[in-house]
Write a protein that binds this DNA or RNA. Structure first.
Lengths: 156, 156
DNA sequence: GTTCCTGCAAATGCTTTGCAGGCAG
DNA sequence: CTGCCTGCAAAGCATTTGCAGGAAC
């Protein structure tokens, strides 16, 4: 499921291309494909997941290129690393400040764009504050349903 | 710096020992030492950092034991894996609801016990809300110093 | 044509696992 | 004593890096 329209993806890709030009970076099909995959998903894929998606269009792409492209995108501030629980780093092309709704049963993460209006100081315990993200823990609709079924049937 | 008193650490270790007994787990000096190190720190050490600390008292301890002990502590719900930023998983023996100050350069995580007083609805996008944690991103004092040094010397 | 980027493969770093001996109970 | 736990070493993954050829400009 796309969380932004194809037109918006195209616009963002155009901005990426402009950013590359202005930085003297080359615009390669692999770079565009990696960014498009990241833009088209709101489920915070791992590098490997992006790789599998890109491979559908460019079967000879290498995982190393995906990692290198993501690093470039991070430096251009077009992609952010998402703090996460698990073994792999996850990435997010949604650059606007937003928050995460995490299911404590199945681990699914959903974006929340609500503004909590937190007033953070510029400095906190000596840290130079850059931004924040609220992680809300809860049970997703699917898991709630599973729970109620389970209690009805006395299973597990 | 200790964020809880020695008495509190002792109490928590006693609870851990009781939990081990009730589960049929053996109480070994290594296990106690790993838990004590985790209790005594609020900076969410990596397994390696715990290992280095434990090694001061038990020079022959192995990193594998530290990993296995942390896994045991997680299963006993005495230690939590925290959302991480860098390359290693970080652990936390503070089980109460609290927030995190994360360095985007080196991944260090500091506890913030400040109450942000967010009023979350009971339901959000169909999720049954249970709690939240604020992740504040920034640059820690050590990394700020490194950054200013680098710009002074025009390196990289 | 020049330089940067890519694919491949090897290296690195973090974490897990198999095994034989040792210690807690 | 018995069997779980430990230390060691090797294996298993995720990610990074070196290098030679190829593509972008």
């Amino acid at each position: 499921m796309l969380y932004i329209s194809l037109t918006m993806i195209k616009d963002k890709v155009d901005l990426f291309i402009k950013a590359c030009r202005s930085m003297g970076l080359r615009i390669t099909p692999q770079r565009v494909a990696v960014y498009e995959v990241l833009l088209s998903r709101d489920d915070h894929p791992t590098a490997e997941e992006v790789y599998n998606e890109v491979k559908k269009r460019y079967p000879f792409v290498s995982l190393a290129t995906v990692y290198r492209t993501i690093e470039t995108l991070e430096q251009l501030n077009l992609v952010k690393r998402v703090a996460y629980w698990g073994n792999s780093v996850r990435y997010d092309a949604n650059i606007q400040e937003h928050h995460h709704l995490i299911c404590t049963k199945c681990g699914t993460i959903k974006d929340v764009s609500f503004d909590f209006g937190l007033n953070l100081p510029e400095k906190l315990y000596g840290y130079k504050v850059e931004g924040y993200s609220v992680h809300i823990y809860g049970v997703c609709p699917a898991c709630q349903q599973k729970e109620s079924l389970r209690s009805t049937h006395q299973k597990n």
